[in-house]
Design a protein around this nucleic acid. Sequence first.
DNA 1: TGAAATGTTGGGGCG
DNA 2: ACGCCCCAACATTTC
Length: 476
Amino acid sequence: MSTPPPAVVWFRNDLRLRDNPALAAAATRGPIIPLFILDDGGGPRALGAASRWWLGRSLAALASELAALGAPLILRRGPCLQVLRDVAAESGARTAYWNRQYDAASIARDTEIKAALTDEGLDCHTYNGSLLHEPWKVKTSAGGPYRVFTPYWRAVRAMSANLAPAAGVLPAVVGAATLRSERLGSWRLHPCQPDWSAGFGDWRPGEAGAMARLDAFLDDGAADYVHGRDRPGAERTSRLSPHLRFGEISPHRVWAAVQSAVARGDAPEPQAEAFLRELGWREFNHHLLFHFPLIQTNGFNPRFADFAWREDTEGLNAWRGGRTGFPIVDAGMRQLWATGWMHNRVRMIAASFLVKDLMVDWRRGEAWFWDTLLDADLANNVCGWQWVAGCGADAAPYFRVFNPVLQGEKFDPSGDYVRRWVPELARLPNACIHQPWRAESDILAAAGVRLGETYPFPIVDHGEARNRALAAYERL
DNA sequence: TGAAATGTTGGGGCG
DNA sequence: ACGCCCCAACATTTC
C-alpha cells in the first residue's frame, strides 16, 4: 500500500481547522499541504492595515496548531495561480481544496485558477466555508435574489432550522513532505509608519480566541442582548466580527452554538433571535455583494450616481481623528483608532455624521473603516455604509438623520462610553456630556473643559446640517 | 436599527 | 361649579 499523493489545502478567509469543509474533505483522503498565499497583486481588494495586523496574528495561530499536528503551514508570496502550480509541482500533489469566496474579484480569479489547474491535470474541489447558505440558493418566489432584508431573513431563517457545523472536531490531519515556506515576519504585516496597534492587545486572533469569544458571549452576553447590544459602554456585543471575517470560526458553528444555548435554557429565545438576526445581516450583505457586484463601488440605488457629495478635507480629517466636537462621534472614532474596532451602534452614528452632517461621500468613510477596522469585510463594510447613506438595498430612508446628541443621551445615558474614549470630557456631568457646548461656563470650568482648546467646538450645527442634507437628498 | 413638527388629549390652575 | 387656558404627555405626520 502506498500513500496517496498529497493534496494542497489553500487557506484563505477560513483560518481554522474545525468545521472547515475544504480541510475536512482533503484530510479524509490523505496527506495534506496547508498553504497560505499572500498575493498583493490582482484578486480582491488589498487588505487594510488593521486587517494585515490581524492576518499576521491569525496565521501565526493557525501555523502553530498545524505544526502540532505535523502538517506545517506553507507560506508563500506571489500570484496565486503561480504559487499553486509551484507547490503542486514541488510536492507531487494532484488535487487542491479550498473554500469559496463570493466577491466578484475573487470569483473571477478563482474561476481562472480552477480552469488553469484543471487543464494542467489538477483536480480542484471547492466548498462553502463562510456562509450559512450559498447565495444562489436563497431566492424569492419569483426566482430572483432578495433586495429587502426582512423577507430575505424570513426565508433564510426558515431554511436554517437544522444548520449544524460540518464537523466540530479536529480533523485527523496527516502532513506531507515539508516544502519551503517563507517566514511570517518577512511579510511585514505589522503596521509601521505609524504603528498604532498598541491598543489591539485585547484581541486574540485565531481559532482558539474565536471559540473563547463565543463561549464568553454565550455565558453572559446573550442574556440581555436585545438592549445591551445598543449600549456601547456596556460591552454586550459578541465581538466575533474579526473572527468571522477571517473564518477563524464558521457562521454554522456560531449558529449551532446559539441554538444549543437556547435548548439548554442558557439563552432566552428573543435574545438569541436578535443575535442570529445580526448573523443574518452579515449573510444578507454577502448575498447582495454576490448578486450585485457593482455595489462595491456604486450605490445600489442608481439615483445616487451624481449625488452632490461635498469635498470637505478638513471635516473628513476631523472625523477620522475624533475631533468633530460631538462626543459620541469622537468617542467612536477614537475607539476605532485605539482598538481596531467600533461598537455597531456608534458605527451607525459616526457614519451618519460623515454622510449626512458633513455630506462626505460614503466611499471616503468606507475606505477609512476598511483601513482601520480589524473586522473590515468587503460586503459588511460596503453594505453598512450604503445602508446609512441611503443608497443601499433596503437602506435607511434618506430623511433618517441621526442626531448625535440624542443618540448619545439615549444609548450612552451614563456617559461611560464618552468618558472612556474622550477623557478630556470625563468630569462633565451627565446632563451635558453629550453637548458640552451647551453647558454653563462654570460647569465647563469645574470640569476642566475649555472649548476650542481642550476639546473642539462642534464643527457643524447639527440642525443646519440636517436641513442641508434633507434638501440635497430631496433633489434626488 | 430617527427626529422634528404638528396634532390631540386631559388634568389642573385660575378667574 | 364652570369654562378657559396652559402645557405636558402622548400620538400622528412629515421630512
